[in-house]
C-alpha cells in the first residue's frame, strides 16, 4: 500500500496535490494561465428523503471536507 493511501488520501487527492505542485513550479508567465485552471466553483447540497438537507458541505481544494 502506498504511503498516500495509508494517509487516507485517494488517487484524486493525490493527483490534485501533484498537479498543484507542478503548477506552482511553472515559470511566471505560464503560471498565470495554469492557476486559472486550478479553480473549482462547484457547491454541494446533500439531499435526504426527497428534501435538501440544510447543511451545505464545501470541499476545499485538496479535497478534505470542511463543514
Amino acid at each position: 500500500m502506498s504511503a498516500w493511501r495509508a494517509a487516507g488520501l485517494n488517487y484524486i487527492n493525490y493527483s490534485q496535490i501533484a498537479a498543484r505542485l507542478v503548477r506552482q513550479a511553472l515559470k511566471a508567465d505560464l503560471r498565470v494561465e495554469a492557476t486559472k485552471r486550478d479553480e473549482a466553483n462547484v457547491r454541494f447540497t446533500q439531499w435526504k428523503d426527497g428534501k435538501p438537507a440544510s447543511i451545505k458541505r464545501h470541499c476545499s481544494l485538496n479535497g478534505s471536507i470542511l463543514n
Binding site: N10, I12, N13, Q16, R37, D38, V42, F44, C59, G63
Partner: peptide, 12 residues
Amino acid sequence: PTFNDAAKIAIE
C-alpha cells in the same frame, strides 16, 4: 468546467 470541479464531484 475545470478538472478540479470534476474531481470535487468525484470525491463527493
